[in-house]
């Protein structure tokens, strides 16, 4: 497959920027509904998290079943940093990202050499190890009860407490990382990633350093997930071991599969949409897990390209054959 640089059709660009603007102005529309704003902030974190997993899965084809481990680990490191060092985001968050990047690099050295199935199993096991770690260190982490009493954080000395300020901060991080991910897609690195994804063996033969590229994706993905976790913990003021459970990992996978693996924008939409849907459905019924699991099964069987894949099929029907194709 020749390396085709994706050139999306023009209307999509405009649509994209309009929706970015709408997202940014959302707090003005929701001024009187703090609960919805809170939910929207959660949706943004979910979207960032989905994007971080798609950086790995969508770019290299490696499927992580323990992504919540990085999210939770980031949450705990940031929470501990804010509680015991200083609640300054410019200090705590970079620290979190560095620590997680190092841990991801060390484990990734071994993990990314594994083939798909073993990798999937190992990531699940690794996230369980992080989960255990919380209980081993329960003197600091609070064990089962979670880490509580995290002070209100500051950003360059300014205390960030207002829900709207939080919304914009989280939104900024999401858009910045989405733009970065889309930019990476167009760079030689991103193109080489796609080559690795579509055929690792052939990539190796043409001289692409497959393991190193996978490792870069793995570390980037873990670091962004940790940033999302750190931000959410500071936003929430607490973090519980449940953030690392394999159900949570399943949630993140669901965002990505629902949105469409490898589309980058799809998972972001998937994460946000799913968070709202989960909230409303679980307020209607307590059999949430059945619908969730059932939806998962149905999507994998009938729409393996996710909603984004379905949408792009319709888009092509409407606007004729597009030059680029949605990478999968």
């Amino acid at each position: 497959m020749p390396l085709v640089v994706r050139r999306p059709v023009r209307p999509l660009h405009i649509l994209g920027w309009v929706s970015v603007l709408v997202g940014a102005l959302l707090p003005f529309a929701l001024g009187s509904q703090p609960f919805v704003l809170q939910l929207a902030s959660q949706a943004i974190v979910a979207a960032t998290l989905a994007l971080s997993l798609d950086l790995l899965t969508g770019n290299t084809g490696l499927l992580s079943f323990g992504h919540a481990g990085w999210y939770g680990l980031g949450g705990y490191i940031a929470g501990l940093g804010a509680k015991f060092v200083a609640p300054e985001m410019f200090l705590v968050l970079p620290l979190t990202m560095i620590v997680v990047a190092v841990v991801a690099w060390l484990t990734g050295l071994i993990l990314v050499r594994q083939i798909g199935k073993t990798f999937a199993i190992l990531t699940l096991a690794l996230s369980q190890i992080f989960y255990s770690l919380i209980f081993v260190a329960s003197a600091w982490t609070g064990g089962e009860d979670g880490l509580q009493g995290i002070p209100v954080p500051t950003l360059a000395g300014l205390s960030i407490a207002a829900p709207t300020a939080w919304y914009w901060l989280l939104y900024f991080v999401l858009i910045a990382s989405l733009l970065l991910a889309l930019y990476l897609r167009r760079t030689p690195l991103g193109q080489a990633w796609l080559a690795v994804k579509s055929n690792p063996e052939r990539s190796l033969f043409v001289g692409i350093p497959v393991v190193r590229l996978k490792l870069i994706a793995y570390v980037l993905s873990a670091t962004l997930a940790a940033l999302a976790g750190g931000l959410f913990t500071l936003f929430n003021g607490a973090v519980s071991p449940d953030t690392m459970s394999w159900l949570e990992s399943g949630n993140i996978l669901m965002y990505v599969v629902l949105g469409g693996v490898g589309t980058l924008i799809g998972p972001v939409i998937g994460g946000a949409a799913f968070t709202f849907a989960a909230q409303y459905i679980s307020s209607l019924t307590d059999a949430w897990l059945i619908y969730f699991g059932g939806l998962f099964v149905v999507i994998v069987i009938f729409a393996p390209d996710g909603l984004f894949g379905l949408a792009s099929v319709f888009w092509r029907r409407l606007f004729g054959p597009s030059r680029g194709q949605v990478a999968r």
């Binding site: 084809g61 499927l63 079943f65 798909g116 199935k117 999937a120 159900l247 399943g250 996978l253 599969v257 693996v261 059999a287 949430w288 897990l289 059945i290 619908y291 969730f292 699991g293 059932g294 939806l295 998962f296 099964v297 994998v300 069987i301 393996p304």
Partner: peptide, 22 residues
């Protein structure tokens, strides 16, 4: 592809757990 079977059985695990909860 292999990915689909992993995702599918993962979904099944959630589904069965949900049914057991219920």
């Amino acid at each position: 592809p292999m990915v689909d079977s992993l995702l599918l059985t993962f979904g099944l695990a959630l589904l069965i757990t949900g049914v057991l909860y219920q």
